[in-house]
C-alpha cells in the first residue's frame, strides 16, 4: 500500500435528531441514547446496571421509558434516539415498572451498602419490599441445577442471601448484595480486563456470578485488578479494608478524603483516587472520566499501597 496521507482521526460529524421527551423538544446527535438525551434535559432516569464506561447490557430495567408506538417499555440506557420519537419518562406505566423493579430487588437482595441514590429511588417510587413477605434465609445457591428447584417455604420471599465469600486477602464477595447487573462480568471480561475469571452461571432466580465450578478466586483466573469492585453498584464486591471497617463500625465516609494522583508503579499513567481515613488508605478507585484507563487499574495500583503506610 502506498497511502501517503495520514489516516484521519475519527471525527464525530453526526446527524442531528429531533425528538420529544416529556413534551419538550430536544435535538441531539444521532447515536445518542434516550438516557443521554434525558440527561441533557436534566431529567433524572434511575439506572443500576448502566455505567458510562461499559456497553449497556440493559438488564435491570429500572431505566425504562415509554416510547410512543412501542408495545412494551423501552430501556433508555441502550435505545438510540430516532427522529420524531415521543418519549415519556414519568407516566404511570413507567413509574409502576420502576417501582416494581426496585421492589423486586429490595425484596430479594441486601441493598444496605448500595449507593444513596438507590435508597432515594426506593422512597421516591414507593417500592415496598415488605409486601412480598418476610425474607427467606441463606441458601446454597452455587450448586443450583438449572430447572431443578424446590418451591420456597409458603409465606417466605426467597432471597439471594448466602454466605460471604472471603477467599483472598484483598477483597470479599458478598453475593447476598448482588443484583446481577453483569457489570463485574463485563469489567472482568471484554469491556476492560479480558481475564474472564467470572461469568453468569445458572439461570432464572438461581442465576449467579461464578467462577468455573465456583472455585475460590485463588484457583481461578482472577488477577485481582479489582475492576469488578470499581463497577459494583451495591457493595457486593468490596475491599477487605472497607469490609472490616464496616464490620467494626469504623467506616466513616464523612471522615474520608479522596485525592486524585498517579499510580506509583508502571508507565501507563493510571490515575488513582485514594480514599484516606485517619491518614490510612482504605480504598482505591480510579476516575471513570480519565481517558487513560477509564476507571480501570491493575492489582498493583488497586491494592499495592501498603508500602506507603508502613505495612
Amino acid at each position: 500500500m502506498t497511502t501517503l496521507a495520514p489516516a484521519p482521526t475519527p471525527v464525530a460529524l453526526r446527524r442531528r435528531i429531533e425528538l420529544s421527551i416529556d413534551g419538550e423538544a430536544v435535538t441531539v446527535a444521532e447515536g445518542t441514547t434516550i438516557l443521554q438525551a434525558c440527561r441533557t434535559l436534566g431529567i433524572e432516569v434511575p439506572t443500576l446496571c448502566y455505567l458510562e464506561t461499559l456497553a449497556p447490557v440493559n438488564v435491570c430495567r429500572v431505566c425504562v421509558v415509554e416510547v410512543e408506538g412501542s408495545r412494551a417499555l423501552v430501556p433508555s440506557c441502550s435505545r438510540p434516539v430516532a427522529p420524531g420519537m415521543v418519549v415519556r419518562t414519568g407516566s404511570e406505566r413507567v413509574r409502576t415498572s420502576r417501582r416494581m423493579v426496585l421492589e423486586l430487588l429490595a425484596s430479594s437482595v441486601d441493598l444496605s451498602t448500595a449507593g444513596g441514590d438507590v435508597h432515594r429511588w426506593i422512597d421516591e417510587y414507593g417500592a415496598n419490599a415488605d409486601r412480598h413477605g418476610p425474607a427467606g434465609g441463606p441458601t446454597a445457591r452455587d450448586r443450583a441445577h438449572a430447572g431443578h428447584h424446590e418451591a420456597s417455604a409458603v409465606g417466605e420471599a426467597a432471597t439471594v442471601a448466602q454466605v460471604v465469600k472471603r477467599d483472598n486477602d484483598q477483597y470479599v464477595r458478598d453475593y447476598s448484595k448482588c443484583i446481577l447487573c453483569y457489570k463485574c462480568v463485563e469489567a472482568c471480561g471484554e469491556e476492560a480486563q479480558n481475564t474472564f475469571a467470572i461469568a453468569v452461571a445458572g439461570r432464572g432466580f438461581d442465576a449467579r456470578i461464578s467462577t468455573e465450578f465456583d472455585v475460590a478466586l485463588p484457583d481461578s483466573a482472577c488477577v485481582y485488578c479489582g475492576n469488578c469492585i470499581g463497577v459494583c453498584p451495591t457493595g457486593a464486591l468490596m475491599f477487605v479494608s472497607e469490609h472490616d471497617l464496616r464490620a467494626s463500625g469504623e467506616w466513616d465516609e464523612s471522615r474520608q478524603e479522596v485525592t486524585r494522583t498517579v499510580c506509583p508503579y508502571c508507565g501507563v499513567g493510571c490515575n488513582l483516587e485514594l480514599h484516606v481515613q485517619d491518614n490510612r488508605i482504605v480504598k482505591v478507585t480510579s476516575p471513570l472520566d480519565h481517558d487513560v484507563t477509564r476507571g480501570n487499574l491493575c492489582v498493583k495500583g488497586r491494592f499495592g499501597f501498603e508500602f506507603a503506610q508502613g505495612g
Partner: peptide, 18 residues
C-alpha cells in the same frame, strides 16, 4: 510478574493473592 515490581521494595508490602 504482574503483581510485583522490580526489586519488590514497593510491591512486597501488600498481601498479593497472586
Amino acid at each position: 510478574r504482574l503483581d510485583s515490581f522490580n526489586t519488590g521494595v514497593q510491591s512486597n508490602g501488600y498481601a498479593s493473592p497472586l
